[in-house]
Amino acid sequence: MRSANPRLLLLCAAVVAALFALQFVLSEYLVLTATRILILAIFAMGYNMLMGYTGMLSLGHAMFFAAGVYAAGLSSYYWGLSLPLAFVLGVGASFAVSLVTGLLVLRTQAVAFMIVTLMFAQVTYLTTLQFSDITGGDQGLTLPTGARGFTLMGIAVDLTRDSHRYNLALALFTATLAGLFALTQGRRGRLFAAVRENAGRTEMLGFNTFRIRLVAFVVSGTLSGMSGALYALMFGYIGSAFAGFELSIEALLFTLVGGPGTLLGPLLGTGVMTLLIDRLSGVTSAYLIVVGALLIAVNQWAPAGLLGTLRDRRLPWLK
């Protein structure tokens, strides 16, 4: 079978190869940063599936990230679940949460959709505070260091070691990239684009647009939750901030900066913004002011983001 978008496939392969090579060049500290970027990029890629490819702007994706964080983290903390099992539980929980939420919120569109997702996320955030006896609330919980390694199919993984963490994150990132390539390019991708551009017409071509939206929503939420589960288990910490408004906005910002509706945009956006925020937060505690200014600037002058602008001007296959 011929690939739907061979040039993009090639570029993705090159990016993954470059990411693999990166660990031999970067300092220990930067490998750690790169690990974080890869995990958060999965979050942004999930967000992009909904916002970029299907045209629905959510303001509450932290709730799915948090579903992954808490399901994985709490099951590991309280029940001593092995890391792979806790991870699977985290992904499963975010799948369930996004399915139920999707069935409700997909009855709304545009502005109402944004407000409703924001409110559901706020409910999630407040819930983590309300049950702080269990969740640790704002302070959070640190996972015991004894539960930081596992052996899966003969491979021993030690999550206190930087290289193990990096390669695990890279593996899951690559799997996400491959999955989203299959979903967003070619015939299937055309369906999401059709819903984004003209849902009414798509319905009259015989497609169940609600179902297409739901698939995008659940894929989006589950990937966000996977990213959350990974983040919690890898860095051994869970806390209410993972359900906060700011995190939902970060997913939006990373996607907007990198290019909504481009496969590699979220990675680029996450990379650029994480490095920038890390640098800034060393200088001032008010680093969010830059986040605010960027949101306004990108929205005003470059709503297609970095890769989106490149796609519109030069490389139409970059989608």
Binding site: L57, L59, V291, G292, I296
Partner: peptide, 11 residues
């Protein structure tokens, strides 16, 4: 406008 006013919120 929602995205921009979120930006304004932070600023």
């Amino acid at each position: 406008t929602i995205v921009s006013t979120i930006g304004l919120l932070y600023i």
